[in-house]
């Protein structure tokens, strides 16, 4: 196997190459849904699950369907279709078998289809030429990394409700600045492990 082992990739995807703090993916829902810890926990779980599954499916689709047929220019549209179909399927499945889980996760699932972190993870997997095991490690690590970032953020934002922010910075701008500080903190992990 060439390249780093799946475990290294997993750790790196959580800390040093956090998909949100280093690659800026999934910012929209990160800003919109990070007001309460409960919400971000639910969303983080859903994203992790969908990300692992879709990167794995997309790996198989890309290497066993698109490459042999020479259809790589259709990558984007096929990936997004796979993600949309998978999310739809999970939603129906969850609704059918666990109503409790459906109410906990259900509202987040449609949001995930348009979450750029999901599509981004699949595209990174292609660009970095991961093997299947590396893909699994990367998908899981990226999902957990995203969840960690959004949960930390919602904790900070809950505290921030009581602080006196300059008027133009209220809301999104201050959230951006805090994310910047978080990104700086995560850069401290940079010497630990690294992937591209």
């Amino acid at each position: 196997m060439n390249g780093p082992s799946p475990v290294v990739i997993l750790i790196a995807a959580i800390f040093t190459n956090n998909i949100l703090l280093a690659n800026f993916l999934g910012m929209c829902s990160f800003i919109a849904c990070s007001r309460q810890i409960g919400t971000s926990l639910g969303l983080g779980t859903a994203v992790t699950f969908v990300m692992v599954m879709t990167t794995a499916i997309n790996y198989v689709v890309y290497h066993h369907v698109l490459l042999p047929l020479g259809l790589t220019h259709l990558t984007f549209i096929v990936f997004i279709a796979v993600i949309a179909a998978f999310v739809q399927f999970v939603e129906m499945f969850v609704e059918r078998f666990s109503l409790k889980l459906y109410f906990a996760l259900g509202i987040f699932l449609p949001l995930i289809t348009v979450n750029c972190a999901i599509l981004g993870a699949s595209l990174f997997m292609i660009i970095r030429e991961y093997s299947f095991m590396q893909t699994l490690g990367f998908g899981f690590g990226a999902g957990v990394g995203w969840a960690v970032a959004i949960i930390l953020m919602s904790g900070l934002r809950q505290k921030m409700r009581y602080s006196d922010v300059p008027q133009p910075f209220e809301g999104v701008p201050i959230a951006m600045c805090i994310t910047g500080v978080m990104a700086m903190a995560f850069m401290g992990f940079a010497g630990m492990v690294s992937i591209q």
């Binding site: 703090l21 800026f24 951006m176 600045c177 994310t179 910047g180 500080v181 990104a183 700086m184 850069m187």
Partner: peptide, 8 residues
Amino acid sequence: VLAPGAFF
């Protein structure tokens, strides 16, 4: 040029 600068 790094990530934090973009956020700020």
